[in-house]
Amino acid sequence: MGPSFRSAFTGHLFVLPAAGYRNNSDGSSNNQASNGNYWSSTLESSGKSPRLNFNSSDANTNANNLANGYSVRCVQVFTGLSLIL
């Protein structure tokens, strides 16, 4: 399981699984249950996109090549009375 977060607005728990990633050179699956890699919806002009990476001791964000097979999760964020998708 990955890190969990509790919404300040709804109190609901949000969990990101440590799903690992698909290697872009040979298609193998790597780091399941130890690392989570999640794409951002932002696309950079260089063919890269920011991603969230985490493991049991660290979390960071950096831009990575889109050929990497990272996870995608649709997340809705509620702020006050508005809904941001």
Rank of each mutant, 00 (worst) to 15 (best):
A18D: 11
N62S: 14
F9W: 07
S56P: 02
H12I: 00
R73D: 08
Q32S: 12
V72A: 13
G36D: 04
T79W: 05
V15N: 14
N64A: 13
T61M: 15
N64W: 14
S25I: 13
N30K: 15
L16I: 02
L85S: 13
S7T: 01
R51S: 08
A19G: 11
N55R: 00
T10M: 01
S28V: 09
Q32E: 15
Y70K: 01
N62F: 15
R73F: 13
D26E: 11
L52I: 06
G27Q: 09
Q76L: 13
V75N: 12
V77A: 08
P50D: 08
S40A: 10
A59I: 08
R22E: 08
G80V: 02
G47Q: 11
Q32L: 11
L85N: 13
S71L: 04
E44D: 15
S56G: 14
A8Y: 02
G47D: 11
T42R: 10
S45V: 01
K48E: 15
L43R: 15
Y38C: 00
L13W: 09
P50W: 07
V75F: 14
A63I: 02
G11Y: 03
G47K: 10
A18T: 10
R73E: 12
G27H: 08
S82F: 09
A18I: 04
D58M: 03
L43Y: 12
K48L: 02
N53K: 08
S82H: 10
G80M: 01
T42A: 11
D58Y: 05
S4C: 09
N65S: 13
Q32I: 06
S34F: 03
F9P: 01
S25D: 14
H12K: 13
A59R: 07
F14I: 11
T10Y: 01
S41H: 06
L66F: 03
N65I: 05
L83D: 03
N23A: 14
L81N: 09
S34N: 09
A19M: 05
N64R: 11
L52M: 12
R6F: 05
T42W: 05
V77I: 15
N30C: 12
S41C: 05
A63H: 08
G47H: 13
L81W: 00
N62E: 12
S49A: 15
F9E: 11
G20C: 04
D58R: 05
N24S: 15
L13G: 02
G80W: 00
T79K: 10
G69D: 04
N23T: 04
N30F: 04
S71C: 03
R6D: 04
T61Q: 12
S28Y: 09
N60E: 07
S71Q: 07
S4V: 03
P50C: 07
G11I: 01
A63Y: 08
A18M: 15
V15M: 12
S4P: 03
L83H: 06
S56L: 10
N31G: 02
S7P: 03
S7I: 00
N64H: 12
R22N: 07
M1L: 12
R22H: 08
N24T: 05
Q32Y: 04
N68R: 09
T42S: 09
S71A: 14
P50Q: 09
L16Y: 00
Q76W: 06
L66V: 12
A18V: 06
K48F: 06
L13T: 08
S4M: 07
V15P: 02
